[in-house]
């Protein structure tokens, strides 16, 4: 079947694909190699491609500048907010998939709108509220505010997953006398696990990547890793090696997660408009 098609020459195609891969990957190559350069090597002009690698930037950034603590902060915040989004979102998704009630459409609209609202809209009032309540620089503040984008995405993906589970299963269980909660927990949830896992990965990636709220709502104790990386940018003699080492540490976990969820990435980013 395929042989009948007219194709562009094979070599041209291969070359194109290699260019695509190179353009996508090169910035990461440059990030990692820069992170392995000493300060002197990193500031050579024009930049050098072959040099003796060192892990000094990682050691200094992690243990002397406190990047390790900000990474732990980011991890704690991302895990907690994801957990909370799942606890709140999964039952809501079940209700949206299985129950009929008034206002369902409006609820949907509201969830999707949250995906599109600029975080700066919420950052202004959140800053004032957090300041009045003494919640600046606290982990819990970020854990809660990240729900504004995590909860919609969890609800959306898991609702979709629940919808795909045949209703007959529920019916059978109900005839046996199982409560709705029991049906969700013991019958639907195990079958919906792939969707739950993907939504958890999304929620983790978005929270881990977030900068603006971290920048505005934390100072030292709850400072997140992206906010830390940005704070290296102040002053004139920029420590490029350390900045790239920190960037590498930030980016590696998200890239791994993104590759794990790569099949669902487009679906998740479009909230299901594209399958």
């Amino acid at each position: 079947m395929a042989a009948a098609r007219t194709q562009s020459p094979l070599w041209g195609q291969i070359a194109l694909l290699i260019v695509i891969i190179a353009v996508c990957v090169f910035p990461f190559y440059w990030m990692v190699t820069t992170s392995l350069k000493t300060h002197v090597v990193a500031l050579e002009a024009p930049p050098v491609w072959i040099f003796e690698p060192t892990l000094a930037n990682y050691r200094e950034a992690l243990f002397e500048d406190g990047v390790l603590r900000t990474l732990i902060n980011s991890l704690v915040i991302a895990i907690c907010t994801t957990g909370l989004a799942l606890v709140l979102g999964v039952p809501a998704a079940f209700a949206l998939a299985r129950f009929e009630f008034r206002g369902k459409k409006d609820l949907w609209f509201w969830f999707i709108t949250n995906r599109m609202v600029s975080p700066i809209v919420l950052a202004l009032p959140f800053f004032l509220i957090a300041r009045n309540l003494g919640l600046l620089d606290k982990h819990v503040t970020l854990i809660l505010i990240y729900l504004t984008f995590n909860l919609p995405i969890v609800i959306w993906i898991v609702t979709d997953q629940f919808r795909g589970i045949p209703y007959d299963l529920d019916e059978a269980a109900r005839l046996e006398g199982a409560s709705q909660f029991r049906i969700m927990r013991s019958i639907c949830l195990p079958l919906a696990m792939p969707g739950v896992a993907v939504s958890a990965i999304f929620s983790f990636i978005f929270s881990w990547n977030e900068l603006m709220f971290g920048l505005i709502l934390t100072r030292t104790d709850a400072k997140t890793a992206p906010a830390m990386a940005v704070s290296f940018m102040e002053g004139y003699n920029l420590p490029y090696g350390k900045i790239m080492a920190t960037s590498t540490l930030i980016v590696i976990p998200v890239l791994i997660f993104a590759l794990l969820a790569s099949k669902q990435l487009v679906r998740g980013l479009t909230m299901g408009a594209v399958k």
Binding site: I20, I21, C24, V25, P27, F28, M31, I205, W208, N209, L211, P226, A229, V230, S247, I250, V251, V254, L255, F257, A258, L259, S262, L265, L269
Partner: peptide
């Protein structure tokens, strides 16, 4: 797989 990488990269990075 390479195409997935830029999309997931932290904006700040």
């Amino acid at each position: 797989l390479s195409l997935v990488l830029p999309m997931a990269t932290t904006y700040a990075v």
